[in-house]
């Protein structure tokens, strides 16, 4: 984000970052005493003033009911996939011949927002046998432990299509 960002967006980013930091402060300090709260407000405000152009979880999040529902669905799906990826990885590691056929392939994503892409890359890293190695614009380079050579197009499409629909609603 650069200086051409509209004023309203900058204000929103600042408030979002401030709220996130303050929430973390509350969880960390675990107390509601007035002096602790004041220190929290001052420190969070200072940090948000310096870093509001960075990324937080809610940056570019669309504040609509659909986005919130998609968020919950995303996390439900995500944890299911995390469990599945670990079980398949455990099966690979435990089988003596080590059945792997690694490859680095590139995939295009439809997502436009920075945070959406970041979340997509992170989710891909934590799902079955795939890991994001690099990101250049709309292209993601993904390392797979086991790639199906027979149908490359479909195999790569499958990697992104699992999370893209949710993230598209959440971040665009």
């Amino acid at each position: 984000m650069n200086s051409t960002t509209p004023e309203i967006h900058r204000k929103r980013d600042f408030i979002i970052l401030f709220a996130t930091l303050f929430l973390f402060w509350l969880l960390l300090s675990n107390s509601l005493a007035v002096d602790v709260l004041i220190i929290g407000v001052v420190v969070s405000a200072f940090i948000s003033l310096v870093f509001y152009q960075g990324l937080t979880f809610f940056t570019e999040f669309r504040l609509s009911p659909q986005a919130v529902v998609a968020g919950f669905k995303f996390y439900g799906h995500f944890f299911k996939e995390l469990l599945r990826s670990n079980l398949s990885m455990a099966a690979i590691v435990l089988s003596p011949p080590l059945p792997i056929s690694p490859a680095i392939v590139k995939v295009r994503t439809r997502l436009k927002s920075r945070m959406g892409r970041l979340m997509l890359a992170n989710s891909i890293t934590l799902t079955p046998g795939t890991m994001t190695v690099a990101m250049e614009g709309e292209w993601l380079y993904i390392h797979c432990v086991r790639l199906d050579d027979s149908d490359l197009e479909a195999a790569t499409r499958e990697i992104v299509s699992e999370f893209e629909p949710y993230l598209e609603v959440m971040y665009g």
Binding site: L82, T125, L126
Partner: peptide, 26 residues
């Protein structure tokens, strides 16, 4: 434990990262 086992058994860095990070996160 399985993650560390993967770290030992996998043949190259990329596969080791995969085995290492996924299993340890969960």
């Amino acid at each position: 434990f399985l993650g560390s086992l993967g770290l030992i058994r996998m043949p190259d860095v990329y596969n080791r990262i995969q085995a290492g990070t996924k299993a340890t996160t969960l």
